[in-house]
Simulated scan of single mutants.
Amino acid sequence: METIVGEWIKTDDLQYLRKTGQKNGHGVYEVIEARCAEDDYVLCSGSISVCDYFDDDNSYNSYCTNVINSYYESVENFENNYKDKETREQILAEMLFEETFYFELSYRIVSGDDIEKELEKEVNLKK
């Protein structure tokens, strides 16, 4: 279930996303996510510009196609699941963010006991 916090949508237990604009006809999204790392979490944040994952002919580039296939088995399955372009781009931004290494993003280590509080604090800082 999606919970709205200001402009942020809670897309998963430990993930928030918001659309921040458009670039070349595709959405730009900011994502904040906590990733499990043994007893602690890595709290990551960053921006995904969906247009960066398209070729000049406006088709998914090979990296993007591989990411889609890893979640949905095929581009066709993915597109059939999300007919609405806005929803499809949001889901695509989530997948691309999840496949981005934490060290390519802004991140910090957070105690597992404090993760939900720290995640909400991060979201509230960026309202």
Rank of each mutant, 00 (worst) to 15 (best):
E33A: 07
I68C: 15
N69L: 06
L105T: 03
S74Q: 13
S106F: 07
F103S: 14
T100V: 07
F54Y: 11
N61F: 08
E122D: 05
G112Y: 07
L14N: 02
F103A: 13
E98H: 02
V67M: 01
R88E: 03
C51H: 11
G21R: 07
E2G: 11
C44S: 08
Y60H: 09
N66T: 11
E118T: 00
V110E: 05
F54E: 03
C51W: 04
D40W: 07
R18W: 06
Y63E: 08
K23I: 02
D12P: 00
I91Q: 03
E99D: 10
W8K: 00
D13T: 12
E7K: 07
D13K: 13
Y29F: 11
G25Q: 00
E116Q: 13
D12R: 01
N58V: 04
S106P: 03
Y41V: 02
V31L: 14
A37G: 08
E118D: 02
F101K: 15
Y71D: 12
I115T: 01
T65A: 15
S59T: 14
N80H: 12
H26Y: 10
I91Y: 03
F101R: 14
T87V: 10
T65V: 15
E79F: 08
D55A: 11
V75Y: 07
L119A: 02
Y82C: 01
L105G: 01
L119N: 06
N66R: 15
E33S: 13
C51S: 11
G21N: 07
N24I: 09
F103C: 12
A93L: 03
S62E: 15
K85C: 05
G25R: 00
E86W: 07
Y63G: 05
E116H: 14
D39A: 01
D57R: 06
L105V: 02
S70I: 04
N69H: 15
L105N: 06
S45C: 13
M95L: 02
F101T: 12
E120M: 08
N61G: 08
T3Y: 05
R35I: 02
